[in-house]
Each structure stands twice: as C-alpha cells, then as structure tokens.
Simulated assay, not measured.
Amino acid sequence: MDTGLSRRGLFGAGAAAAAILVGAGPAAASPGTSRMTLRWWGNNGWEVRVEDKTILIDPWLTRFKTGTYTPAGADPQTPLSVNRELIDGYLDRGELRADHILVTHGHYDHLSDVPYLAKRTGATVFGTETHLSLMAALGAPEDQLAVASGGEDLTFDGYSIRIFRSLHSATGPRARVPFPGSRPLSRRDRPRVIEDLVEGGTLAYQVTGGGASVLNFGGSNYIESELAGVRPDVVCLPVGGAKVTQYVPRLLRTLGNPRYVAATHWDDFDLPLGQAHDPNGGLDTLREAVTAASPASEFVVLDHLGTFVP
C-alpha cells in the first residue's frame, strides 16, 4: 500500500512538503509557493483553499460499505446514509468549511453527503440538472443550487471556477457507465439506495486562485477537445481508464504536462476515512503511466486529510 505519509505526519511542521511523494524519483518534491492549499478527503473528495476561501469537490466523508471491491461488486440496493455526527465534528471544529461545492457527477460516492454539507455551510453548489434534482430531493436548500452544463467560466472573490463538459469512467467488457441515467429538476422523489443516484452527466472543474490552478476529473475519462489550451499547475487524475484510448499520455499531452499529477479516486471507499488503502494496484499502474508519459511531472500521493501547496 502506498498512502504517502502517515496522517499524523501531515499535521506537523512542514506538512505541505512532506505530504508529496514523487513517482519519478526518490526525493520528496519541493513545495510550491502559491497561496493555494489542496487537501484530500478520500475518494475524489478535495478541498481547495485560497487564503480565506474554500472550495470542496465531491466531498464524501460518510463512506458506507457497498461491496464495491468484492468480486460481486457494489450492491445496488445498499441504502443511502449520511454520517451527520462525523461531518458535524469536522465542521464544528473548524476543520471543514465551504464557499462552493462542486459536484462532478451524481453517483453516491460523489454526491450523497453534499446536501447536508450545503445546508450546514451555506455553500453554493454547482452540478448538472440531474445532480441538482437529486440533491434537492435529498434536502439541499434549493436557493443554493446552481445548474452547470460545462463551458462556464466564473469569477468570485479571490478565485475563479471554470467548468468543462466531461465523461464518466467506462468500465467492464462493454465499457458501460455504472448507474446511468438522468432526471429533470422538477422531479422530487427521494433517492433511497445507491442505484437511485444516477450519473446524470459528468463535469470537470478547474479552480484558479492564489497563484495556482487545479483541474479535477471525477471519473477516468474526459473530452479532449474541451481541454484545448488548458494549462493547470495540478491535475487530479483518477486511477483506471483502461477502456479509454491512451488515457494518461493523451490527457497529459493535451494539458501541456502539468507540474503536478495528484492521484485521486484510488482508495477503497468501503473503508472509513483515515484508512487509505489501494485495493487493486491502481495507484502503481497510474504512477507508471504518468512517469512514462510525462517524466517531468511530479506524482503526488496524499494520505487522507493530507495537504500540499502547489
């Protein structure tokens, strides 16, 4: 298992530098000099802090068991749940906050905690019409929901958010999207089990501020033409992509070989927060692909709640 450093080590002095591991060499990467800090909350959950502003991407702290990494795969009838006590603890201690929450797609491991987090933080939430329909049905305050289609380039106080049309991972021998589907914003029946949280279109997000930019993909696929001329300092790259032609080299070439490639969506999310574990070797496969395609890029692996400064 390669989880970076221990969680304890990430909260001491020099945490930003210590949290980075390099796939292409034995030495730790030099920390950046921006005023942006990235923190990984497991799965594709990321916190982007630009001075006193915070943007969350796909925050999912609850991490209930579904059987995802068993031979049978996730049980579609697994009931949805939100661990409010866990979330409240982080919020009440000031370890978690949000001005914006960005949803890449509608699956349970990306969306199911967002309605509660939106209610507690007052954050504005971006997502597709399907995502907003799901979140409203789960109790998100509707005046905080903002529909996105991809193509938006929005400026806020100290940071900007650019939204791209994207694609979900294609899995299995038929290259299918798990739990596909969409629903109109007017629909209000409450999702009960994980298969009710349909993909509903996939978005990618670039957050820029504090002298740096980070581009996040919630699935191991993308639309290459959408990314022409995009040059992030950090790309959060999910493991997988086996069905996508030249998944890693084509993307990194399109993005101009970013300085940092941060691994995301690689851990076993049937395990609770604080137990980052690579269940199937996807992390090593991704590292090797990044090293081969863009040896000058630094491969970043964080433990849960690990941080670094690009």
Rank of each mutant, 00 (worst) to 15 (best):
A29P: 09
A137N: 11
Q144F: 08
L185V: 14
G241N: 10
R49C: 12
T128E: 04
D75E: 01
S30A: 15
E47D: 06
G210K: 13
D52A: 09
L203E: 04
G122R: 06
T245I: 01
H277D: 06
G201N: 06
G241I: 14
E195C: 03
Y205V: 13
T3C: 00
E195M: 03
G106K: 03
E142T: 15
S297I: 12
R35N: 11
P31A: 13
E85N: 02
T128G: 05
R188T: 15
G219D: 11
Y260A: 01
H131L: 10
L305E: 12
P115E: 09
G172T: 07
T70P: 00
I161G: 00
G89Q: 06
A204Y: 05
G9Q: 05
M135G: 03
G9M: 10
E298H: 09
A228L: 06
W266Q: 00
V300M: 02
V177C: 02
G73N: 00
L21D: 01
G12R: 02
R176N: 03
R188P: 04
G201T: 14
P279C: 07
P191H: 10
T3L: 01
E224R: 14
G4V: 11
I55S: 00
R231Y: 11
G42I: 13
N43C: 10
L251K: 08
S220A: 15
C236E: 04
I55K: 00
E142F: 08
K119F: 12
R120F: 08
A137K: 05
R120P: 01
D268C: 03
N43G: 01
V214T: 13
P141S: 09
E142Q: 11
A148G: 00
L283M: 02
R188Y: 08
A146N: 04
P26W: 03
W266F: 11
D270S: 13
S81T: 14
A24G: 10
T3Q: 00
A228H: 02
K119G: 09
V198A: 04
G211N: 03
H107L: 14
L91C: 02
G229Q: 03
Y247I: 06
L5K: 00
G12M: 00
R35C: 01
G241W: 10
A148H: 07
P26V: 07
R287Q: 13
S160A: 15
P141I: 05
T208E: 07
I161M: 01
Y159I: 11
R63D: 01
T70W: 00
S169V: 15
D284R: 04
V309W: 13
E199M: 06
L10P: 00
H131A: 09
L86R: 05
L21E: 01
S166D: 12
R187G: 06
G122V: 10
R231H: 11
G9A: 11
D99H: 07
S220R: 02
G219L: 12
A27H: 06
Q144W: 07
K119W: 12
T62A: 05
R97V: 05
Y108C: 02
L102I: 14
A276Q: 03
S297A: 14
A175K: 12
